[in-house]
Structures are given as structure tokens and as C-alpha cells.
């Protein structure tokens, strides 16, 4: 890891991570940010939201990004998730230089590589839980029956096999977020990015969601990158990256 990166090993829950350090030490980086800068123009003034940022995240890791509002957390998450492109620098995610990809290629790459978990769940209200989870598979050549089967499995993983045909408005916040997580994993992405996944939830539901993310990381080897303001949520991550004014601290 480069000197510019400051990783804070999370040792608050040693029992939870007994088996991880040894396995993770051998893992190669799945996310590599090299000299990433992201600038925006406000009026005629250039604002560098991220400045010359270097970051590596290992495959199979569970990392958290923390920092005050405006520190660039979501901007960095958007870059890594392929929703945005850096102004300068190189960004390699899962072996692909996403900073050099066109819009169409990036959309296809996102649909195969990234699973999104949003703060506001962002389920489609006119669709059932099963249909919401099936959404990412509509972009694949997976047959309809297989799509349905995979969506059912994903919902079973998040413990909602009895809510397949419920619409979002018939679910609690915690259940909605679990449907969101099922949607994020249904196409078996390498990386799950979560933007404040517990921001809208009470403590109990938040713990359930964090347990689920932990399970996906430990049992399904998903690399998880989570933006959070919540110290309790950050404690569940193995590595916490702290951002301030566009730089890792």
C-alpha cells in the first residue's frame, strides 16, 4: 500500500474476523486508484473534490469510507462504481481500466461487475420484491425461468423468501434494504458498493443489514466498499479509509 493511504485496521471485533487476515494477506488489489483527481466547475472556479488520491482495496475485503460531508466519499464511490470518470489519474477495477471506457462499455461493465446498495433503497414501486431483484438480470441473456430462479435464491440469501410478491410499500425499511441487497448480488458481481446502506434504518434493521453485508463478504467472497457516517457501521468493516477535503487522511 502506498504511503498516501492511511488504513485503520478495525480491531474492535477480533472474533468476527479470526480467519480473514491470513486469507486477505494473499489477495491482490481489486480496486486501484492511482493519482485520482475529480474536479467540478462551479461558476468559473475549479473545485477539486478528489485530489491526487491513491487507494488500493484488496479482493474479498470489506472496506468503509468515512469522512465529513463534502469530503468526497460519494464521489470516490461513484468513480469506483463506474458511474463517473476521473478528471485525472488511472482507475482500475476488477482488472479493467474504467477511467478509459466509453459510456456504453461502462454501462455493460457496471451491470456485470458492480452491485449497488443505495441509502434510500431505490426499489421500483410498481414491481414486486422478486421483480425488483430480477431487474439486473434483464440485461443478460439468462432465460426468464432462470432469472426468476436466481432472484428467488437471492431473496432467500437475504431472508425474504416469504416476501417474493410483496411490493416495496408493503415492506418495512429493513426489508426494503434487504431486497436492495438481493438486487445487488443477483447477478453475482465481484464488488458491492453501498452508499450509506443503514442511513435510513433504525438500529436493529441497520444491524441486520450489516450482518448481511458481512455474510456476503465472508461466505460469498464479495468485495464490499461502504460509504458511511455511522461509526457502528464502520466498525463492521475490516478497513476504514478516512477522507477529508478530497484526500485520504
Amino acid at each position: 500500500m502506498s504511503d498516501a493511504k492511511v488504513h485503520e485496521e478495525n480491531r474492535g471485533d477480533e472474533s468476527r474476523h479470526d480467519d480473514k487476515p491470513a486469507r486477505k494477506a494473499a489477495n491482490k488489489p481489486v480496486i486501484e486508484c492511482k493519482g485520482i483527481t475529480r474536479s467540478f466547475w462551479r461558476a468559473k472556479e475549479r473545485v477539486d473534490v478528489l485530489s491526487d488520491l491513491d487507494l488500493e482495496i484488496e479482493e474479498g475485503s470489506f472496506d468503509a469510507l468515512m469522512g465529513p460531508s463534502g469530503s468526497g466519499k460519494t464521489t470516490l464511490l461513484n468513480l469506483i462504481a463506474g458511474l463517473d470518470r476521473p478528471t485525472a489519474g488511472r482507475l482500475l477495477v476488477a482488472g479493467t481500466e474504467v477511467s478509459a471506457m466509453g459510456d456504453a462499455a461502462l454501462a455493460k461493465w457496471r451491470s456485470q461487475t458492480i452491485g449497488f446498495v443505495f441509502q434510500h433503497f431505490n426499489l421500483i414501486p410498481v414491481l414486486t420484491a422478486l421483480e425488483n431483484v430480477e431487474l439486473p438480470l434483464l440485461l443478460t441473456k439468462v432465460p426468464a425461468s432462470e432469472r426468476k430462479k436466481r432472484a428467488q435464491i437471492a431473496l432467500r440469501v437475504v431472508g425474504l423468501e416469504d416476501r417474493l410478491h410483496h411490493r416495496p410499500q408493503q415492506l418495512s425499511g429493513g426489508q426494503e434494504q434487504r431486497v436492495g441487497i438481493a438486487r445487488a448480488i443477483v447477478h453475482d458481481p465481484k464488488i458491492i458498493v453501498a452508499d450509506e446502506p443503514t442511513g435510513e434504518l433504525d438500529r436493529k434493521s441497520a444491524d441486520d443489514v450489516l450482518n448481511l453485508l458481512d455474510k456476503l463478504n465472508r461466505e460469498f467472497d464479495k468485495t464490499i466498499l461502504m460509504v458511511t457516517h455511522d461509526p457502528a457501521a464502520a466498525e463492521r468493516a475490516r478497513v476504514v479509509h478516512k477522507l477529508d477535503k478530497g484526500r485520504l487522511t
Binding site: 458511474l83 451491470s111 456485470q112 431505490n122 421500483i124
Partner: peptide
Amino acid sequence: THEYGVLLALGFRP
């Protein structure tokens, strides 16, 4: 608009 943003994020094309 927000919903379309979600679909675009999931990989749906314009």
C-alpha cells in the same frame, strides 16, 4: 428521474 438514475446505475442504457 431518480428511478431512471437507479436503472442507469444498474447498467440499463439510455
